[in-house]
C-alpha cells in the first residue's frame, strides 16, 4: 500500500519536473538544459521574496513563477532564437546558462541545508493506514491539475493550438501566419514557469539545494528519453514507470540508488529503442 501511494506521488513529482522540459522540446526542438537551473532559480527566488522582502507566500510564489517565465523568454529571445536548428549549440548554450545560474547562486552564498520553503498546509492524514502529509497530497492534486490545464490550453486556446501546429510542422504553421520565433519564446516562457511551478510544489518536501538543479535535469531527461522526446503522453507514462521503479528500488534495494534508476532508464532506452518507448509520432510517420 505504501509503495502504491508513494509510487504515485513520486511519479507525479517526476512528471511535474519533466513537463516543462518536454513542452519546450516538443514545440521548438530545443533541449533546454537550463531546466534544472530554472527549477532552483524559482525555489530560491520564492525563498528570497518570502524571507527577505516579507511578502505573503502565495504572492511570493506567483512572483517567482512570473520571473521564471520572463527569464525563460529572455533566454529564448536573446540566445536561442539566434542558434535554433543547431542542436549542439542549443545544448551547450542552455547548459552553460544553467550552470551559470546554479553556480551564481552558490557564489552568492546560497549553500547548505538552511533554505526551506514552508508546506502549503501543515499536517498529515492516514489513508488506508498509510500516513501521508498534506503537501504530498497537494503534489498529486496540483500535478493532475497542471496536466489538465496544459491539455486544455493546447486544445482550446488560439495560442495553444498554434503551439501544437509549430510542434508538428514548423514551416506549415508559418504558412498559416504563426510566428515561429514568437511561439518558441512563449513555449520557453511556459516551460520555465512549469519548472518553477514544479519547484514551489516539490521543494517544501525538502531543502532547496543547488544540486537539485542537476538532479532535476537528469530526471527530466530520463523521463523524456524513456517516453520519447517531445511526446507528452509518453512523458506521463514514463514518469510512472520510472517513478515506481525508483520507489521499488528504495524499498527493496537501497535508497541511494534512486539516481541510478533514472540513468539506467536513459541507457536502456537508448540501447533498445532510441526514439523512446511511447513516442507516437514516429509510428505515424512510418504508416503514412
Amino acid at each position: 500500500m505504501e509503495i502504491l501511494f508513494y509510487g504515485i506521488i513520486n511519479s507525479i513529482s517526476l512528471a511535474l519536473m519533466a513537463l516543462g522540459f518536454t513542452l519546450v522540446y516538443g514545440i521548438s526542438r530545443v533541449p533546454n538544459f537550463a531546466h534544472g537551473a530554472l527549477y532552483v532559480f524559482a525555489g530560491f527566488l520564492t525563498w528570497i521574496i518570502l524571507n527577505k522582502l516579507g511578502l505573503p507566500y502565495p504572492l511570493a510564489i506567483l512572483l517567482a513563477l512570473i520571473c521564471s517565465a520572463l527569464l525563460g523568454a529572455v533566454i529564448s529571445m536573446g540566445v536561442l532564437v539566434r542558434i535554433r536548428g543547431m542542436e549542439m549549440s542549443e545544448v551547450i548554450a542552455t547548459y552553460a546558462l544553467g550552470v551559470a545560474i546554479l553556480e551564481g547562486f552558490r557564489w552568492a552564498g546560497f549553500k547548505g541545508m538552511t533554505y526551506t520553503l514552508p508546506p502549503f498546509f501543515k499536517g498529515s492524514v492516514q489513508i488506508l493506514g498509510v500516513p501521508i502529509d498534506y503537501q504530498r497530497i497537494m503534489v498529486v492534486v496540483l500535478g493532475v491539475a497542471v496536466l489538465a490545464a496544459l491539455w486544455l490550453f493546447t486544445r482550446l486556446t488560439r495560442m495553444g493550438l498554434a503551439l501544437r501546429g509549430i510542434a508538428q510542422d514548423e514551416r506549415a504553421a508559418m504558412m498559416l501566419g504563426i510566428d515561429s520565433d514568437f511561439a518558441a519564446t512563449i513555449a520557453m516562457g511556459i516551460g520555465c514557469a512549469l519548472a518553477g511551478l514544479a519547484a514551489v510544489i516539490l521543494l517544501p518536501l525538502g531543502n532547496i539545494v543547488i544540486e537539485a538543479g542537476y538532479n532535476v535535469l537528469i530526471f527530466a531527461i530520463a523521463v523524456c528519453v524513456v517516453g520519447g522526446l517531445g511526446s507528452w503522453g509518453g512523458a506521463v507514462i514514463a514518469s510512472f514507470v520510472i517513478g515506481f521503479a525508483q520507489i521499488l528500488t528504495v524499498a527493496y534495494i537501497r535508497p541511494q540508488f534512486q539516481m541510478v534508476v533514472a540513468l539506467l532508464a536513459i541507457l536502456v532506452t537508448l540501447i533498445i529503442r532510441p526514439s523512446g518507448f511511447f513516442g507516437r509520432q514516429k509510428e505515424l510517420e512510418e504508416r503514412v
Binding site: A162, Q168, R171, L176, R280
Partner: peptide, 26 residues
C-alpha cells in the same frame, strides 16, 4: 498571402477539426 504547400504538410497528430482550428490562427 497563404501558401498551401506541396505534399500538403498536414499536422499528422491533430484531428481534422484541430488542423482546421490551427489554420484559423489569424
Amino acid at each position: 498571402i497563404i501558401l498551401c504547400p506541396e505534399r500538403r504538410r498536414i499536422f499528422p497528430e491533430s484531428s481534422v477539426l484541430e488542423n482546421l482550428k490551427i489554420g484559423a490562427y489569424l
